[in-house]
């Protein structure tokens, strides 16, 4: 496996699930499939139509989204909106995301602190000799 393929695999693992949080967040104002796809890709979420459209229906089946056909315009579109339940779930997920972000930040800091600690101990030992 090349390095690029390894990276792509890990990135995919990391991004899995972010589309759900993003969709539930965006759809607090009602939107239809293609509009959401556009919004997400503008916001930097790499999501494909063939993943997003079935996902919307699944979230609806889980009661996190509700839908309504809008036939006012020439092209009838199915508009999705985040339910209360969906908003609560999204809130929890966003909280978890923030927690993980902090935790990873702390880990990096700890390693830095540990490295500095080693360095200073090393210096002390060195000066004792």
């Amino acid at each position: 496996m090349t390095m690029d393929a390894t990276l792509a695999g890990h990135l995919q693992e990391l991004r899995r699930g972010t589309v759900v949080v993003a969709s539930l967040t965006v759809l607090r104002t009602p939107g239809y499939g293609y509009s959401l796809l556009e919004t997400l890709s503008r916001a930097g979420f790499e999501v494909e139509a063939n993943t997003l459209y079935p996902l919307l229906r699944r979230l609806e089946a889980q009661g996190l989204l509700t839908s309504e056909w809008n036939t006012d315009e020439t092209r009838p579109r199915k508009f999705y909106r985040t339910t209360e339940q969906g908003e609560a779930l999204a809130e929890t997920l966003r909280g978890e995301w923030a927690r993980l972000n902090t935790a990873i930040g702390d880990l990096s800091d700890e390693r830095l602190d540990a490295a500095i600690g080693d360095l200073s101990t090393g210096t002390t030992l060195g000066s004792e000799k």
Partner: peptide, 12 residues
């Protein structure tokens, strides 16, 4: 799904 998929395709 027929209706929704067609609308999405036309939008794109």
């Amino acid at each position: 799904i027929d209706r929704e998929l067609r609308a999405s395709i036309e939008d794109a």
